[in-house]
């Protein structure tokens, strides 16, 4: 069995600065794997391990996603091999174009049984690429999966929706997206990182031009409420009493 896990590379949101005009400044932010895609990679690695399957990672994005540290980080998480389309033609794509680009990348992977996506990316959290990819490939899709297993070519998945948990079954191949509940990301050890450097990765340019069906007119940080910013240190005299008084005054 072969499992493919799809992940998005995004600027680390903890290092996004707000410029004077309210626009977002990414210049200090490193490229990282979008946080819930780390959960997807872990869920995929665990499923691969328990089914003796191989695990391929794939991503499409701008040229800068071809980053050796980032690739090692992914390959150190139980991923055997990596395929990427890294091209500025693939920057800021919408879900429809992302699905097209992923589908072309998949043609390099001769066969696969299951494609696993994350719950939603840190930037858009649109929860659409899994569905659009399945539509493009004409495969069934199961979203919001919190637990999954495969038996005799059939996927059994538990999906956690707003009010109910659904247990569903579908024959492979299929696309699923898993929520962070499915698995907590491992912390790769030194050995994993060293061996990751020896694993194959295939990075290439885009094979097509992509247009977005969504035009971005503006992006700005919303105004935050003014806050007093009175900070008390526990070591100060009467710190707790002052904090307690602040709570009472607020109530």
């Amino acid at each position: 069995m072969k499992i493919v896990v799809s992940f998005k590379v995004v600027p680390d949101d903890q290092d996004i600065q707000i410029a004077g005009d309210g626009s977002l400044d990414y210049s200090k932010a490193h490229q990282v794997v979008s946080s819930y895609d780390l959960n997807a990679i872990e869920a995929a690695a665990q499923l691969a391990a328990s089914n003796d399957a191989s695990l391929v990672g794939m991503s499409v994005g701008k040229a800068a996603i071809d980053d050796s540290k980032l690739k090692k980080n992914v390959l150190a998480r139980g991923v055997d091999e990596l395929f990427m389309t890294a091209d500025d033609a693939c920057a800021d794509m919408d879900a429809y174009s992302t699905a097209s680009a992923l589908a072309s990348l998949l043609t390099k992977i001769d066969s696969y049984d299951l494609i696993i996506c994350g719950d939603g990316s840190a930037d858009n959290y649109a929860q659409q690429v899994d569905v659009q990819l399945a539509a493009k490939l004409d495969l069934p899709v199961v979203s919001s999966v919190t637990r999954l297993s495969v038996e005799n070519g059939v996927l059994k998945a538990e999906r956690t929706l707003e009010d109910v948990v659904e247990v569903v079954r579908v024959a492979l191949p299929a696309v699923v997206s898993v929520t962070p509940d499915a698995a907590l990301p491992r912390i790769p050890g030194m050995k994993d990182i060293v061996s990751a450097g020896k694993k194959p990765s295939d990075v290439s340019a885009a094979v097509a031009a992509y247009t977005s069906g969504i035009e971005v007119l503006d992006c700005r940080a919303p105004k935050q409420a003014e806050r007093r910013g009175e900070i008390i240190d526990l070591s100060e005299d009467g710190a707790v009493a002052r904090f307690a008084a602040a709570i009472k005054a607020a109530q």
Partner: peptide
């Protein structure tokens, strides 16, 4: 919202 609310985007569907 963009990046969980760090930003807010104005978008227009072209299709």
């Amino acid at each position: 919202r963009y990046f969980g609310g760090i930003g807010q985007r104005s978008l227009k569907a072209t299709g």
